[in-house]
Design a protein around this nucleic acid. Structure first.
Lengths: 310, 310
DNA sequence: CAATGGTGTGCACATTTGAGCATGGCTACC
DNA sequence: GGTAGCCATGCTCAAATGTGCACACCATTG
């Protein structure tokens, strides 16, 4: 058996030649090799260092029932800030590539944020034949810091030649009643209907904290921030804050949030979630648990955190 | 590439199926797997502990231009003496099996000694269709300790149904003249002619020392022993003592030795050398260097020693 | 002593894989 | 703007390999 394995695997003879040398039939050689494999006398192993990325992808797919997952390697950098920038760049590149490979059609819903901006920047012209790009949630900033949500949608549209549809509203308003009133208004209502109708959604995940985009953009103030912390919120998806178990952390705030509700997101055929950079583990896990992601794109650190904490 | 390797080697999909999952052609998958192998991203290794035996066999074949080699594993025992007995038993079994597999025809020459006796004992009836078994060298003991050479030849004959031909002479005599005279005599001369004509020879190797068969049987006395030591002899093949370089250690003694000369042994088609037990390394190496072996059967310890000292 | 069942073997056939070659896109260089 | 060379890709065809089946061998059992 070992002699056969030696001749076959090391010297790369055919089973026929091995049989000739050993004076047995090629069938017997085949069975010998079978046995060697079954009895693990021969080990075939993938030794490339990046195989762990594949394993993480498989782990995510298996644990959360995803369609697919992409986990990218981010080489270490000098500073924490560089690390975040590099991670975002790498993950965004991968997300753009994955989107291209998935070839979505019809309408595509998109969120906004730094990560989404980076994804948009990496899309190559002609990446999809989609007909329409729809903004999924409100973004109109009231602070000096612009959300650049429009740039995201425009870039998605520009690179695909699709029509674009913006959602001209803040992410979060002061009362549920105002939210309802705004959603009734045709300018927002029609976009929301289109977002609902889209079969595909692409969005990133945001962390909760003082450096959060929503805080910086003035959508949530100190009282809301405190209440969210109290409720165990770890971050947001489409402006909707989740606790680590994947449920809406603060329903009262959720009712003031303008955009596609999570149930609707969950119902879509293709939902691509992008999470990049240190500290994204908890919101990534929450989002995965919420069931609104079926294609995950992230970095190794985040993926490892998620797998370890599930 | 890694994904392909994962699906192909770990999940045992066909290249076609891998291609389907990855959205590429099976040709590309094949090339991907090729590359993975070439770049050693995938390692195929034989992990069975006995693979070292195969490697030793290959080493012997390559270094000494053999037809084949058999190296057997000898489990450790309590005492050195048990080890020697077990080694002899294992190696003899392997030698008998190898002889059976080689299916020699015509006349087969055999030597004598403890190892050969053990080999003979392991031959199964019908192991060969050879016509004649010929004793290759003199063996008639003058001491109380019999050489049992006749038993070896008889057993070879009995198990094969072949005729036997003994060499009724001592291994070593007092003078070259006497040796010549004996070899002229028909009783010995005819056997010697048959030994010369045989296409196959089977023989063991003896170590030099006070416990040597030749010393115990009274063929060499103290002066010869001392002279052999002086000349760098390490052991014998067919009663002919070799130095570690594989040459006759003491030509004067060799001229007094009755039996097939080494040049004649070298000229045969099939020469099976058997060396078993601790301390056999040097004579095994000497015999291999002398070029008179083309099929080697030995234990791991001896094979390792030979490879390490060549 | 026949029947039985397990095991190993070789064979015909189907599937899988590899080798060589043509094609076409891309780049770099005139 | 052309063009030569390179590389990746997919194809055809042949080789290599796996599979189900029939048969032989052996030991056990009623």
């Amino acid at each position: 058996m070992l002699r056969a394995a030696q001749l076959y695997y090391r010297l790369h003879l055919t089973q026929d030649q091995v049989g000739e040398r050993l004076g047995v039939s090629r069938f017997k050689v085949g069975r010998l090799l079978d046995r060697a494999l079954r009895e693990s006398a021969v080990r075939i192993e993938i030794v490339h260092p990046d195989i762990r990325l594949v394993e993480l992808e498989d782990g995510l797919v298996a644990r959360f029932g995803l369609r697919s997952a992409v986990v990218v390697d981010v080489p270490p950098t000098a500073s924490e800030q560089d690390q975040e920038l590099l991670a975002r760049e790498r993950v965004a590149t991968a997300a753009a590539a994955q989107l291209t490979a998935l070839r979505p059609t019809g309408a595509i819903g998109v969120s906004w944020g730094r990560t989404m901006l980076e994804v948009a920047a990496h899309l190559r012209p002609g990446w999809t034949a989609a007909s329409e790009i729809v903004q999924l949630n409100g973004a109109m900033s009231r602070s000096a810091r612009p959300t650049r949500a429009q740039e995201v949608v425009e870039q998605f549209g520009l690179t695909s030649g699709a029509a674009i549809q913006l959602m001209p509203a803040p992410a979060i308003v002061g009362s549920p009643e105002l939210r309802e009133a705004l959603e009734q208004d045709p300018s927002i209502g029609e976009t929301l209907a289109a977002a609902r109708a889209a079969e595909t959604a692409v969005f990133s995940m945001g962390v909760l904290g003082t450096e959060s985009v929503h805080v910086a953009s003035g959508f949530i103030g100190d009282p809301d921030l405190a209440a969210l912390g109290e409720a165990g919120a770890v971050g947001d998806v489409l402006g909707r804050f989740l606790a680590i178990d994947g449920r809406i952390a603060l329903p009262s705030l959720d009712r003031r949030t303008i955009g596609l509700p999570l149930e609707e997101l969950r119902a879509k055929t293709l939902t691509v979630g992008v999470a990049a950079g240190p500290g994204r583990g908890s919101i990534a896990l929450a989002a995965l648990r919420s069931g609104c992601i079926n294609v995950m794109v992230t970095d190794e650190e985040t993926a490892t955190w998620v797998i370890d904490h599930e």
